[in-house]
Design a protein around this nucleic acid. Structure first.
Length: 278
DNA sequence: AATGGGCCCAACCGCGACTTT
DNA sequence: TAAAGTCGCGGTTGGGCCCAT
C-alpha cells in the first residue's frame, strides 16, 4: 500500500498530527479501534476515529472494522460450499457483493469480491476457453447482469443450457447452482439422477455430478435427470432442512432468491451450518 | 542466491444513496 | 426544499508473499 505500518511517526505523532494516516493498520490502531467500538459502539464513524484517537478517516475505520476486526468474522478459508454459494448468488444478483455477503454469515463483501476476482472469475475464464465465446470476461462488468432476469431464469450463463436433448425441448431445470446438501427432485420418471452436489464450475451444461460430488451430505436427488429421459414434468425440488421437508418449486438456486420463503430457507441453512465446511 | 512473474488480499478511491439540518 | 454531512458500495491499486527459473 502506501506506507509501512505505522509506529514511528503516527499515532499521536507530532509532526504530522494533522494529517490523516493511510495504509496498513498497526496493531495499536487495531486495538484502539476495537476497544472503542466494543465499549462504546458506533455513533458516527468519523467520531469513532476521533474518540479512539486515531488519525484515520471514519471511512477507513469503518472498513477496518467491517473487514477485519468484527468479532463475528470467519477466519477460515472459503469452503467449497461457500464458493458454490458465491457462484450462485453472483449469477443471480450480479456483483452486489454486500448483498451476497449478507447471505453468508461471517464473510465480508470485500472478501467475497476478492475471492471472486482472484479465483472464480479466473477459473471461469479459463474453463470457457479464455475468451471470446464468453465475451472475454475481461472485466467484472462483463459477467451476466444481475437484473437480467431472463438470463438468470434461463439457466447458467444466460442461455438455455445446452444438452444432448431433443431439439426444441426445454431443458429440464436441473439446478446447476442449487446447493444440494438437502434437496430432492420430484416428479418425472427415470433413474436416479447422478447429481450429488451442485456444480462447482462455470460449465453451463454439466449439471450433473460436476463437482463437489464427494461431499457426503449431498442430497438424494431423485428422478428426471438432465440426460433427458422422459417424464420431466414438474422438476420440483424438495428442500430439506434437518429432516423437515419443505417443498419448494425451485428450478435453480437462483429461483430460491425469488422464492417468497427463500430467505427463511437460507437462514435455516445458515443456522444448520450448511454453508460451512464440514 | 538472485530475480522475475503471478497471485492474494488489505485498503484506498470515487460516487451514489441516504440522513440530517 | 436544498445543502451538507455521512455512509456504504463496487472497482481498483499496489505491497508483499510464493514459486519457478
Amino acid at each position: 500500500m502506501v506506507e509501512k505500518p505505522a509506529s514511528q511517526a503516527d499515532v499521536g505523532g507530532e509532526v504530522e498530527a494533522h494529517k490523516e494516516r493511510k495504509g496498513l493498520w498497526s496493531p495499536e490502531e487495531d486495538e484502539r479501534l476495537y476497544t472503542r467500538i466494543t465499549r462504546h459502539g458506533v455513533s458516527t464513524w468519523s467520531s469513532v476515529a476521533q474518540l479512539a484517537g486515531l488519525r484515520r478517516s471514519g471511512k477507513s475505520c469503518r472498513l477496518r472494522w467491517m473487514n477485519y476486526l468484527r468479532p463475528d468474522l470467519k477466519k477460515e478459508p472459503i469452503s467449497k460450499r461457500e464458493e458454490e454459494t458465491i457462484i450462485s448468488l453472483q449469477k443471480s444478483l450480479g456483483n452486489r457483493w454486500s448483498v451476497i455477503a449478507g447471505k453468508m454469515p461471517g464473510r465480508t463483501d470485500n472478501e467475497i469480491k476478492n475471492y471472486w476476482n482472484s479465483r472464480i472469475r479466473k477459473r471461469q475464464t479459463l474453463s470457457t476457453g479464455g475468451g471470446k465465446g464468453d465475451s472475454g470476461l475481461a472485466k467484472q462488468g462483463d459477467l451476466p447482469a444481475a437484473d437480467d432476469k431472463a438470463s438468470v431464469l434461463a439457466g447458467p450463463r444466460g442461455k438455455e443450457p445446452v444438452s444432448s436433448m431433443a431439439s426444441g425441448a426445454t431443458v429440464p431445470p436441473v439446478p446447476a447452482r442449487f446447493p444440494m446438501f438437502a434437496c430432492q427432485l420430484l416428479g418425472g420418471g427415470g433413474g436416479a439422477a447422478a447429481i450429488a452436489a451442485a456444480g462447482t464450475t462455470e460449465s453451463t451444461t454439466t449439471h450433473q455430478n460436476n463437482g463437489a460430488g464427494s461431499e457426503s451430505d449431498a442430497a438424494s436427488v431423485g428422478n428426471g435427470s438432465a440426460a433427458g429421459d422422459d417424464g420431466r414434468e414438474g422438476h420440483y425440488y424438495y428442500c430439506a432442512v434437518d429432516g423437515d421437508i419443505d417443498m419448494v418449486h425451485l428450478m435453480s438456486f437462483d429461483d430460491l432468491l425469488e422464492y417468497p420463503a427463500g430467505d427463511l430457507l437460507m437462514d435455516a441453512w445458515d443456522q444448520n451450518g450448511l454453508y460451512s465446511t464440514n
